[in-house]
Nucleic acid binder design. Structure first.
Lengths: 70, 70
DNA sequence: ACAAAACATACCCAATAGGGTATAATATTA
DNA sequence: TAATATTATACCCTATTGGGTATGTTTTGT
């Protein structure tokens, strides 16, 4: 899967933002952005979405990647 | 978007499970399943994933649905 | 209509997310 | 290399999640 952490990090850099700028624009704390990009799993969904909307995305259910497809 | 709440409710019923059974199998509380199916936005991502994995899914970033596409 | 199952709402409370902030480590650039 | 920007780690603290449970409401089946 495209892990959430790498997705955020990539998108943020595509926009040329620092973690601080992203936190400000998303209305979340800097701490949160850092935990997000470090792959913390117990984040709050609404906070994650506050960030993703800046990238034109949101969290939703996606099929699990099959590691082997015969 | 296919809201998470309806996705879960639909998948659960496809498997013929009650909220209690789903909660048990996912290892989350009944309270959580209810808040999930009622669209609470501030749920913990890891708990949501514990449920979705039973449906062969997980939460990931998806493009925002455009309500108008000219 | 009646009974039983399923679901919704409300409460208490321990565990923790996340804000703020300070400091350390790392990366970037001149 | 030195100076600077960026990111990582650690701490305190408040607000909230989510478990459990009890009760009320709705739905389902006979």
């Amino acid at each position: 899967m495209t892990s959430l952490r790498s997705f955020v990090k990539r998108k943020r850099r595509e926009l040329g933002l620092t973690q601080i700028e992203l936190a400000d624009r998303a209305g979340v704390g800097l701490r949160f952005v850092r935990e997000l990009e470090q792959g913390k799993s117990s984040l709050r969904l609404d906070k994650v979405n506050q960030v993703l909307v800046l990238f034109g995305h949101c969290m939703g259910p996606v099929p699990l990647k099959r590691h082997d497809l015969s």
